[in-house]
Amino acid sequence: MIAFYFIALLTLASALLVVLHRNPIYSALGLVNTLFLIAVSFVMLDAELIAMLQVIVYAGAIVILFLFVIMLLNVESEVRSARISKIGTAGLAFVLLFAVELAVFALVRDPSGAQELPAGFGSTELLAETLFSKGMLSFELTSLLLLVAVVGAVVMARRKVES
């Protein structure tokens, strides 16, 4: 339990770093840290495969590409103004809404209904079985969607040949 609160606090702190730091590089590094700590939470929930995929895909690849672009563009640190912008107001509204939602969820949920985990929960075999039987259609559709996105990116990025 102590470990959970410790990790949760660290996660929140680095998530705040992402939003609040002026330098975009620090924000991106904070994002790496946040995603990594979320992977640790996954490990504590016995979902080891998801944790590893989280690190490989998000912390190891996607945020690296963010960093890549930010570093190459050499974005300046943003200048902080006292005025809260429209987007800021909308963000605050969302934060409030989310907090209310969480509170309602925590109050409504009955913790006595919690069950023991079945044996092998979170194991790669079980996950694969579920994914390729119950979730077959959505799995294939998702991969199709990703393929379309990749092809689209290649088409957009391709240099136009003068003819």
Binding site: L29, V32, F36, E48, L49, M52, L53, V55, I56, A59, G60, A61, I64, L67, S123, T124
Partner: peptide, 16 residues
């Protein structure tokens, strides 16, 4: 039980 993936994931952090 996810050893191979673990090594891939962790060595990926060197790049950061």
């Amino acid at each position: 039980n996810v050893g191979v993936l673990y090594i891939t994931a962790v060595t990926g952090l060197v790049v950061v």
